[in-house]
Amino acid sequence: MSHMAAVSGRADAPRPSLDATWARLAKAQVRRRRALGVLVVAALVLLPWIGSAWPEPGWVNQGLEWLGLGLMVAAVLGRCACMLYLGGRKGADLVAEGPYSVSRNPLYVFSILAVLGIGLQTGSLVVGLALALAASLIFRWIVGEEEQLLRVAFGASFDDYCMRVPRFWPKLSLWRSPQHVTVDLEGLWKTVRDALPYFLSVPVFEAIEKAQEAGWVHVYWSLF
């Protein structure tokens, strides 16, 4: 979630309405995890039969894979930066500083970049963009659910925030940050730990490529 930690301590929110929204959001988050799980399973089932149209030793294929690795590293660092501003809050205010001053959902933006990077490990730009688009549709849906909760919790201040800051893609000119932030080390470590599975895509797709080259798996579609 992008701002959920900033809601829990809000004592003056309309409690029945907020509780009902929390319950709806909890169910939506379960569906989000299931949708992402379906996306992962579908990728693991389909991608062994899909190959890159770029030759494996070629600079385009290798460049896409290295670009994907860079995007995954950037996603991990970006998610950690979000936690620097989000994790140390007491839960009574709307987080609108650091990454949250340029995008209302930077955690999801970095997650989409990570999915794009994972897809590029196939050496195919089409595969990377297709996976990123699927993930962005899932996140766009859940953001709508989250915004209902934030609007109930913060009212006009959240509406003003929505008017100033883009929903997803950053507007860097809006950046603002306090000189000091309180860091939640446990939350920061959890963010790193949860993101480490991104890098499993490197050996997984390398193994798939080797299996394709050996003829153990037949490539039915070659995509650029």
Results as ranks from 00 to 15, higher is better:
residue 3 H to A: 11
residue 5 A to S: 12
residue 6 A to P: 01
residue 12 D to L: 08
residue 13 A to W: 12
residue 14 P to A: 11
residue 14 P to N: 10
residue 15 R to Y: 06
residue 18 L to S: 10
residue 21 T to Y: 00
residue 22 W to V: 14
residue 23 A to P: 00
residue 25 L to Y: 14
residue 32 R to V: 14
residue 37 G to H: 07
residue 38 V to R: 07
residue 38 V to D: 02
residue 40 V to H: 00
residue 43 A to Y: 03
residue 45 V to I: 15
residue 46 L to E: 02
residue 50 I to M: 10
residue 50 I to R: 02
residue 52 S to C: 11
residue 52 S to R: 04
residue 53 A to G: 15
residue 59 W to F: 13
residue 59 W to M: 13
residue 61 N to H: 15
residue 61 N to S: 15
residue 62 Q to L: 15
residue 64 L to Y: 12
residue 65 E to Y: 04
residue 65 E to S: 11
residue 65 E to N: 10
residue 68 G to V: 09
residue 68 G to R: 11
residue 68 G to C: 11
residue 69 L to G: 14
residue 72 M to Q: 12
residue 76 V to K: 00
residue 80 C to D: 05
residue 81 A to P: 00
residue 83 M to I: 13
residue 83 M to Q: 15
residue 84 L to D: 07
residue 86 L to V: 12
residue 87 G to N: 03
residue 88 G to Q: 01
residue 89 R to I: 12
residue 89 R to M: 06
residue 89 R to T: 15
residue 91 G to W: 03
residue 91 G to F: 05
residue 91 G to Q: 05
residue 95 V to T: 13
residue 95 V to Y: 05
residue 96 A to I: 12
residue 98 G to T: 06
residue 100 Y to M: 06
residue 101 S to I: 11
residue 101 S to P: 08
residue 103 S to G: 05
residue 103 S to D: 10
residue 103 S to F: 09
residue 105 N to H: 14
residue 106 P to N: 09
residue 108 Y to Q: 13
residue 108 Y to V: 10
residue 108 Y to W: 07
residue 110 F to N: 03
residue 112 I to Q: 01
residue 112 I to S: 03
residue 114 A to L: 01
residue 118 I to H: 00
residue 118 I to T: 09
residue 120 L to D: 11
residue 128 G to T: 13
residue 129 L to P: 03
residue 130 A to I: 11
residue 133 L to T: 14
residue 134 A to M: 07
residue 135 A to W: 01
residue 141 W to E: 11
residue 141 W to G: 05
residue 148 Q to N: 13
residue 149 L to T: 15
residue 151 R to L: 13
residue 151 R to H: 12
residue 152 V to L: 04
residue 153 A to D: 02
residue 155 G to W: 06
residue 157 S to A: 14
residue 157 S to C: 04
residue 159 D to K: 08
residue 161 Y to H: 12
residue 161 Y to V: 10
residue 163 M to W: 02
residue 164 R to P: 04
residue 172 L to D: 00
residue 173 S to D: 12
residue 173 S to E: 12
residue 175 W to C: 08
residue 175 W to P: 06
residue 176 R to T: 13
residue 178 P to E: 09
residue 186 E to R: 14
residue 189 W to H: 07
residue 191 T to M: 02
residue 193 R to F: 08
residue 194 D to F: 06
residue 194 D to V: 07
residue 199 F to Y: 01
residue 200 L to A: 14
residue 201 S to K: 02
residue 203 P to E: 03
residue 203 P to L: 05
residue 210 K to N: 09
residue 214 A to N: 09
residue 216 W to I: 09
residue 221 W to C: 04
residue 221 W to D: 04
residue 222 S to T: 04
residue 223 L to W: 09
residue 224 F to P: 00
